[in-house]
């Protein structure tokens, strides 16, 4: 098996570039906590409304700098008792699950793009920098009303 000299140069370049890409995302993810949405907690999809934190969906202040937002996605909306309002500059930890089919909880123009899977709890921590009204939408097909599934979160 013979590699042309230039092919070797090209492959070394390619492998180095790919390694750098992986290094950058890996370091940023694991040492600066920039991991994508996820989580290993499970939940009984039929008992979502009785299980904490989804028994009291909405915003809860945990301490001075941290807020928790619990959201249940369902066809075709998100259960939130009142309007969602969170402060800018504070860490917001979103907990999302679904009580029926798979949905997403996606906040436009942010890194919050979470799948909502029945039986699982998805978590994502995010800190808003800009106040404003952000569109929340479902970007995973969930049925006839999928394109009507949206909400809003206000950052103050």
């Amino acid at each position: 098996m013979h590699f042309h000299k230039y092919e070797k140069i090209w492959l070394v370049f390619g492998i180095v570039a790919l390694t750098i890409f992986l290094g950058v995302v890996g370091v940023s993810a694991f040492s600066h906590d920039h991991t994508p949405a996820g989580g290993m907690h499970t939940i009984d999809p039929k008992k979502v409304n009785e299980t904490a934190p989804f028994d009291k969906p909405g915003v809860t202040q945990l301490d001075d700098d941290t807020y928790q937002v619990a959201i249940v996605a369902m066809a075709f909306g998100y259960t939130t008792p009142e309007k969602l309002r969170v402060p800018a500059g504070k860490e917001i930890v979103f907990h999302v699950t679904s009580s029926d089919v798979v949905h997403s909880f996606t906040i436009d123009n942010t890194k919050v793009n979470m799948m909502a899977v029945p039986g699982q709890i998805t978590m994502k921590s995010y800190t808003f920098t800009e106040p404003g009204k952000y569109l929340i939408l479902c970007n995973e097909y969930c049925g006839t009303g999928h394109h009507m599934m949206f909400n809003e979160i206000e950052v103050y």
Binding site: Y6, I9, W10, F13, G14, A17
Partner: peptide
């Protein structure tokens, strides 16, 4: 070589 580097 130049072409693949453009791809790169």
């Amino acid at each position: 070589l130049i072409c693949v580097f453009l791809v790169g």
